[in-house]
Computed example of a mutant assay.
Amino acid sequence: MWIALTILAAFMQSWRNAFQSELSQQVKVSGVTLARFIWAGPIAALYLFSLYQFQPSELPSFSYQLYAFVIGASLMQILATGLMVKLFQLKNFAVGAGLAKSEALVAAILGVLFFGTSLSLLGWIGVIIGAVAVMLLSTQRGVKRLSLNTIVLGIGSGVAFAFTSLWVREASLLLMTDSAMYDPIPFTHRAAWVLLSVIGLQTLILVSYLGIKDRATLLALWHRPRLTLSISVCSCIASIGWFSAMSLQAVPYVKTLGQIEVFFTMLISVFWLKQKVKVNEILGLVLIALAAILVMWT
């Protein structure tokens, strides 16, 4: 189940990134970031309502610790998305998405250090290969000419996404623990509650900020309803897949399998966005996929 959910999430995230890349040429970073959440809230609410109609369950209890995880994940995902959009503006779509996928490697390292995940020697080899791949993807004109700005933005986005994923999983597990005295809450319901909480807070933060500081960006999204809705729909479906999979399995394993996104990304980049991918960029994406396989193998 978690494998199927992860593949679904990776596929939809590839399309979300493609739409965000297109919108980033027309709208500011803050607006592109908001497009990810603005229509996702109602979709997430409808999804949660549907789950309870098909499988009635207990309502969860929310603790202060859960609120802390939700707030942390919400802020980190906003930061990560903003950094990724900046990547799209610096380099082409496929490379920007590839750099953001350093999240999987960072999540593996953080999982080992702070969340009790163990990696074998083969797993660590995968992590190293992934790090080399990120360096390769960060080159502007060959391996010897690295763009420090691109590296910093890519790794920063990956770190922020990794913290988002780790805290989302902790929030979902906390709902299961807090509800142990009642009937167990299904993983789908727990993931949906966390998703709705995170998206709701993110939308409130960004709409409030832009409403005060930059109403022109809100109007820019209003005048691009098709693209904005496409981003929100793809983002929400992807998040349903990610959040549900991470409720079942540890983040490093989910995110390393999620590296299959790089292949979807390359296909979209070449056949839909009509962008060329260089040889070293293809090699970097393939190495990231190899790193994912090695870490998953453990």
Rank of each mutant, 00 (worst) to 15 (best):
R36V: 00
S21K: 08
V32Q: 00
V279G: 13
K28G: 08
S247W: 03
Y209W: 14
L273A: 04
Q275N: 04
F115N: 08
R36L: 01
T217G: 07
V279N: 14
S165M: 13
Q249S: 04
G258Q: 03
L257D: 08
S208T: 15
R224F: 07
V29Y: 04
Q275A: 06
F271R: 11
A108W: 03
P225G: 06
R215D: 09
I125H: 06
G41E: 10
L83P: 01
I125S: 13
Q77W: 01
G241N: 10
L283D: 00
L173C: 08
V32E: 03
G72P: 02
I151K: 05
I78Q: 02
P42D: 02
S30K: 05
C236N: 07
A133L: 10
S61H: 10
D178S: 15
A44E: 06
S102V: 08
L204C: 14
L66T: 06
I268Q: 09
V143L: 15
T150P: 00
P56C: 01
I260T: 15
V251Y: 03
A191G: 10
P252H: 01
Q89R: 14
A160W: 03
L218V: 07
F263S: 13
A180E: 14
V32P: 05
T203W: 08
G98S: 05
F54P: 00
T81L: 09
Y47S: 04
M296I: 13
E261P: 13
V29S: 04
W222Y: 12
L166G: 07
L51K: 03
L173N: 11
A80D: 01
P42M: 02
V251E: 10
I268L: 09
M296P: 00
T139W: 12
G98E: 06
F49N: 04
F11M: 14
G130L: 10
I199F: 09
I71H: 06
L248E: 15
T298R: 08
M296C: 10
G116S: 04
G116I: 06
S244L: 03
A9P: 12
T298N: 12
S61E: 10
L5K: 00
K274V: 08
A180I: 13
A44Q: 03
S147C: 10
V134K: 08
T298F: 05
S157H: 05
L99E: 01
M181H: 14
